[in-house]
Computed example of a mutant assay.
Amino acid sequence: MKISVDVDCTPEEARRFMGLPDLSSVHDVYLEKMRRTIEDGITPDTLTSMVQSWAPMGEAGMGMWRQLFEQMSGTGKK
């Protein structure tokens, strides 16, 4: 037996229903920082520091994510 349920709701309603935190203020701060960066002009140093802030553990962190995705997709070494 297969049962399907369709729920028609906004992303905000779904977030509240699932009990997820409201990150809209964090999103607003992030967008403002991106606007300022673009208005000030993106330099290679700015781009490097921004990318490093996205990957706190640097190359080791990126390697960990790569390995995780490879294991999930079945393309990793066995």
Rank of each mutant, 00 (worst) to 15 (best):
K2P: 06
K2F: 05
K2N: 02
K2D: 09
I3T: 15
S4A: 12
D6I: 06
D6K: 09
C9Q: 07
C9D: 11
C9H: 09
T10G: 12
T10C: 10
T10E: 08
P11I: 03
E12P: 00
E12G: 08
E13N: 05
A14L: 14
R15P: 04
R15T: 06
R15D: 03
R15F: 03
R15C: 01
R15V: 01
R16T: 12
F17V: 05
F17S: 06
M18Y: 13
M18T: 03
L20M: 13
L20E: 10
P21L: 07
D22C: 09
D22E: 14
L23D: 15
L23Q: 14
L23M: 13
S25W: 02
H27V: 14
Y30W: 07
L31V: 05
E32C: 01
E32G: 09
E32M: 05
E32Y: 05
M34C: 01
R36A: 12
T37C: 07
T37P: 01
T37R: 07
I38M: 10
D40S: 15
G41Y: 10
G41I: 06
T43C: 05
T43A: 02
P44W: 01
P44Q: 00
D45V: 12
D45S: 11
D45H: 06
T46E: 10
T46Y: 01
T46A: 12
L47D: 08
T48P: 00
T48Y: 08
S49C: 10
M50S: 11
M50T: 10
Q52D: 15
Q52M: 13
Q52H: 05
S53H: 09
S53A: 15
S53C: 07
S53Y: 05
S53D: 15
W54F: 15
A55V: 13
A55R: 02
P56Y: 03
M57E: 15
M57S: 14
M57H: 11
M57G: 08
G58H: 00
G58M: 03
A60W: 02
A60S: 11
A60M: 11
M62C: 10
G63A: 14
G63F: 05
G63C: 09
W65D: 14
W65S: 10
R66P: 00
R66K: 13
Q67Y: 05
L68A: 14
E70M: 03
Q71H: 04
Q71M: 14
Q71T: 12
M72T: 10
M72I: 15
M72K: 09
M72G: 06
S73Y: 01
G76Q: 01
G76C: 06
G76V: 07
G76M: 05
K77I: 11
K77E: 14
K77V: 07
K77F: 06
K77D: 10
K77N: 09
K78H: 11
